[in-house]
């Protein structure tokens, strides 16, 4: 009895918290345009201050120093403003702001080096040019020793297969991470729930996966179809592939092109319970909120698109092995 009441209280508290949070989100959405205008005002004021320093009196370095200190403070303010709002600003705005801060810092450094004689306030005179060269030299020795030291661990998964149907059923067992690598022309079915999924070097393959309670990390895939439900998904170096997703957070792509997205479309006996247990039973609509890390502009990234409805596969049932082969 008491336990039930306690649970109920906790639940209410959680609902309360969540509703407050979504409220805050929408307030944030409204104010994000005012934050953006603040940001751009700060930016142009810093830029004009930077420009002013060029026309300042070179015979009075202390004045110039003060001027630079002010600029530096303004840049810090700008940076703080971006940081404080990075949860709520649209992603491309966060990234352009990040770049703005970085560019402004660079300009300030350049101007400082140019206009104020270095020795006046640098305590040690380090030859900076040679330092740069050092960091550019790769150190192949460390890399090559790495593999021999590599502990021999086996993570569960499928690797190095061609033209096979690969099935894993975790409905009655608990598994941590699962790894798929170097598959060509395979169909993979993962029934039940896993905590994390790593996918690496897949070609012409189809992947059907039950709920992943943590994250999915995909790298280097070509001409594949993925049907995945998970909390997070990160896609790297993918080309010509289709993703049918249900995700709790925004999917991200990097160095990827010609990929298309659609909603999750998988079924097998018991999938409803598995999805519920993984908090993935509700469609979040995030399958279409893709963030492209290589695309800084507000207009739609050319690297991904929504898969047209008439080209989508229907609901895929992976409980029947024979029929499934035709899906490939």
């Amino acid at each position: 009895m008491e336990e039930g009441a306690e649970k109920h209280k906790k639940h209410l508290a959680m609902v309360e918290r969540l509703s407050k949070r979504s409220q805050r989100r929408s307030e944030n959405a409204e104010s994000s345009s005012s934050i953006l205008s603040q940001l751009s005002q700060l930016k142009s004021s810093i830029e004009s201050q930077l420009a002013q320093s060029l026309s300042s009196d070179p015979s009075d370095p202390s004045k110039l120093k003060l001027h630079f200190q002010n600029i530096s403070q303004s840049i810090s303010e700008l940076e703080q403003l971006v940081a404080q709002n990075s949860y709520s600003l649209p992603s491309y705005d966060v990234r352009t702001s990040l770049k703005t801060v970085s560019d402004l810092k660079n300009s300030l450094d350049l101007l400082t080096a140019q206009l104020i004689p270095r020795k006046k306030f640098s305590f040690k005179n380090k030859p900076t040019a040679t330092k740069k060269d050092d960091s550019a030299i790769p150190q192949p020795k460390q890399l090559s020793t790495l593999n021999s030291d590599f502990p021999t661990h086996h993570s569960p998964g499928f690797a190095n297969k061609t033209s096979e149907l690969l099935v894993a059923d975790f409905r009655d067992s608990q598994v941590g991470e699962f790894t798929l690598s170097d598959l060509d022309s395979c169909q993979v079915r993962i029934i039940g729930s896993v905590r994390a999924l790593f996918v690496h070097r897949l070609k012409n393959s189809t992947l059907y996966v039950g709920p992943v309670t943590g994250s999915v990390h995909i790298e280097d895939v070509h001409a594949c179809v993925f049907v995945i439900a998970s909390h997070q998904i990160r896609i790297h170096a993918a080309t010509k592939s289709d993703f049918y997703l249900r995700v709790r957070t925004r999917p991200i792509i990097e160095d990827t092109n010609a990929v298309r997205f659609a909603p999750y479309c998988l079924t097998y006996p018991g999938i409803e319970e598995d999805l519920r247990a993984a908090s993935l039973h509700d469609e979040t609509g995030n399958w279409t909120n893709v963030d492209d890390f290589r695309w800084l502009r507000a207009v739609q990234s050319p690297n991904w698109s929504v898969l047209p409805e008439n080209e989508r596969v229907g609901i895929v049932d992976i409980s029947n092995f024979q029929n499934g082969d035709n899906d490939l």
Partner: peptide
Amino acid sequence: EDTSVISPTLGFNI
């Protein structure tokens, strides 16, 4: 804080 819904970080947080 609640850790159940976290997006990959696009920039940075403080």
